[in-house]
Amino acid sequence: MTLNDAIITSLEEIKTPANYLDVYKRIKEKNYYDFKDAKTPASTVSALLGNFIRNRDSRVKRIPQKGGDYTYFLTKFESEISIEALESVNSIENASASSLPVTAGNRSFDERSLHKLLSSFLNSTGVYSKTIFHEQSNSKDSHQKWIHPDMIGIRFLNLHTQTSLAFLKAINRLGTFELTAYEIKKEIKTDYELKKCFFQAVSNSSWANYGYLVTFELSDVLMDEVKRLNQAFGIGIIRLSSNPFESEIVLPAKYKDLDFVTIDKLCKINPEFERFVEQVEKYITADAKYISALNKELANFCDPFFVSETESEAYCKEKNIPLDNPVEENLLGNFDGSKYH
């Protein structure tokens, strides 16, 4: 039996979500694998469990736990895991986390520090993005926050000739760009959190061509419900990574026409949103000779972004944003991977 097989067999027998130490102990008790050549056998099991997730192995899923740890289970047992039980665990964790200071050790970080990661990912896909601060709006009604997206973005249609672009503008200027709204969350662990965040994204993106819910951590046990909500309401899902260039669109958003009444309302109450719309209008109505200058002007107005992984990693360390499985990655050097294939 390979160590991968031993891990799967152990999870099969344990049935309920288990951490890497539980899996390691089961392997040892049953003598499924001889660890004589491994310097840190428990860490080896932890690293390989992480590999199942990174390699998108359909057999294994995980649940985030307090302190950045995870419990693992087999996908076929997913229906037996109680959402209520997960909510209870998360309530305890959230209460504990609220009493801790903001340090790199407990991995607490500000949600808005994720904006630069998202802007970097969007820039790499040809989208200009801008943070919209709801507290800067003229309206003092707290309920108006549900009309504000966290970030907005625009992608311009890239035609190869100025002639074809001018022709498209003459027919329909709306066809030359797409506006997107983004709702950003640090983590979504429970069914309740998912529905609350999802319908906030629905409300905040009602005016845009596309709406996305962006999250740094999304519990795998929620994916069936995420897919159902995506199909029903058209909101897409982006999973954000500490390396922004490895972020991914998990589910694409569905296109809809712009709602100019809501756009007008947002322009009235939020000057930053109004400035963004002004920049877009200048860009799409300008003559070709001004496009280069306006492109630079729009880029300077929009959010900054990273151009390298080194920059983003340093930023994440500064902002206490956990790097994606850094410990597990380092542990891979403790054993000879060729033995497990």
Results as ranks from 00 to 15, higher is better:
residue 240 L to Y: 04
residue 264 D to V: 02
residue 245 F to A: 07
residue 303 D to N: 13
residue 298 L to K: 02
residue 281 E to C: 10
residue 263 I to G: 09
residue 275 R to Y: 12
residue 233 F to L: 08
residue 299 A to H: 10
residue 287 D to G: 09
residue 267 C to S: 12
residue 295 N to H: 14
residue 222 L to S: 02
residue 246 E to H: 15
residue 303 D to T: 01
residue 256 K to N: 10
residue 262 T to L: 13
residue 299 A to C: 09
residue 242 S to V: 03
residue 252 P to G: 06
residue 264 D to G: 10
residue 277 V to I: 13
residue 274 E to C: 06
residue 236 G to W: 01
residue 247 S to P: 03
residue 258 L to K: 14
residue 233 F to T: 08
residue 255 Y to R: 12
residue 287 D to Q: 10
residue 241 S to I: 05
residue 272 E to V: 06
residue 223 M to S: 03
residue 266 L to D: 05
residue 236 G to P: 03
residue 247 S to D: 04
residue 286 A to F: 02
residue 257 D to A: 14
residue 290 Y to S: 10
residue 264 D to I: 01
residue 248 E to A: 15
residue 273 F to K: 05
residue 243 N to P: 03
residue 273 F to D: 04
residue 256 K to M: 07
residue 249 I to D: 03
residue 276 F to G: 04
residue 254 K to C: 06
residue 249 I to R: 11
residue 278 E to L: 11
residue 260 F to Q: 06
residue 296 K to E: 14
residue 230 N to E: 05
residue 248 E to K: 15
residue 270 N to L: 04
residue 247 S to W: 05
residue 268 K to E: 09
residue 284 I to F: 10
residue 294 L to G: 05
residue 233 F to R: 07
residue 288 A to S: 13
residue 283 Y to T: 03
residue 237 I to N: 08
residue 240 L to T: 00
residue 287 D to A: 11
residue 239 R to L: 15
residue 253 A to G: 15
residue 287 D to V: 00
residue 263 I to R: 02
residue 303 D to R: 07
residue 293 A to G: 00
residue 297 E to S: 11
residue 303 D to K: 06
residue 264 D to L: 08
residue 257 D to Q: 15
residue 265 K to D: 07
residue 299 A to Y: 06
residue 270 N to S: 11
residue 276 F to L: 05
residue 297 E to F: 04
residue 277 V to S: 09
residue 293 A to W: 08
residue 258 L to S: 06
residue 287 D to H: 11
residue 235 I to D: 01
residue 273 F to M: 07
residue 245 F to P: 05
residue 258 L to M: 13
residue 294 L to C: 07
residue 264 D to H: 11
residue 265 K to W: 09
residue 241 S to Y: 06
residue 269 I to V: 09
residue 285 T to Q: 11
residue 271 P to K: 00
residue 242 S to T: 04
residue 263 I to V: 13
residue 283 Y to E: 01
residue 299 A to P: 04
residue 253 A to C: 10
